[in-house]
Design a protein around this nucleic acid. Structure first.
Length: 221
DNA sequence: ACTCCGATTGGCT
DNA sequence: GCCAATCGGAGTA
């Protein structure tokens, strides 16, 4: 077990196991809502000169599914390339890619090896490490910290070096939703076409926590 | 080798 | 609401 994973467990996070990611992509996209993305920086020197891991945490409030077959918007639609090769791995690793000359986008690979599918993490609600997130995004209000796919990677310092990271045991992990009440977290799930995508708007592959202020785009009615 | 353009963001009208 | 920034991936305009 890596040091980041030990730190996360010690803080009470239940890291999702590999099986979570082997379900159908749209189901994983839906079930990820409420789960917590953890970015762990090992052994930082703190102000008081003590050394300890630093944890940034954000609750997932918006996701988008990209399917292994029949989805022209999926990066792997035309086959395997150097950029999209992580999508062909077994579910449970990160697929991070660079776009628009500025932004890294974070995806969660799903399904068995050889079936290129993934879930884009589109927005988070900041939970832990707000100070460092603000430092990563100077001048932004707290609702602007992680309310978009490019914003959240900046706030959590997720770059291409985390492409392929094992989400069950690495500096980038995902923990189960904090259960509030015996039936777990309760929220209404909204659904729409994907943002910034022209094709297959009838797919309704975007999922979000209705009414959450950190969701990137209000539904267009 | 070259062109086109994007799973976005932030600034300006 | 509109549009420039910015650059590497992907297909060949």
């Amino acid at each position: 077990m890596t040091a980041p994973r030990k730190t996360a467990s010690a803080r009470g996070y239940e890291i999702l196991g590999p099986d979570f990611y082997l379900d159908r992509t749209d189901r994983v996209a839906r079930r990820l809502l409420g789960c917590v993305v953890l970015r762990v920086f090992a052994d930082r020197v703190l102000a008081n000169a003590a050394r300890a891991d630093v944890v940034l945490a954000g609750r997932i409030v918006e996701t988008e599914a990209y399917f292994a077959s029949g989805d022209p918007a999926c990066h792997a639609h035309r086959g395997r390339t150097e950029r999209n090769r992580m999508m062909f791995e077994r579910g449970g690793v990160a697929y991070v890619y660079f776009t628009y000359g500025n932004h890294h986008l974070l995806n969660v690979v799903t399904g068995p090896e050889g079936r290129p599918a993934a879930v884009l993490i589109r927005a988070l609600e900041p939970v832990e490490g707000l100070g460092l997130m603000r430092a990563h995004r100077p001048g932004r209000s707290d609702t602007q910290l992680t309310s978009g796919p490019g914003k959240l990677t900046q706030a959590l310092a997720v770059g291409k070096e985390l492409n392929g990271a094992d989400l069950t045991d690495s500096p980038l992990m995902i923990a189960a939703a904090q259960s509030s009440g015996r039936n777990g977290p309760r929220f209404r799930i909204g659904r729409s076409g994907r943002i910034g995508i022209r094709e297959a708007q009838d797919r309704l592959a975007r999922f979000y926590i209705a009414g959450n202020p950190h969701v990137s785009v209000r539904p267009r009615e």
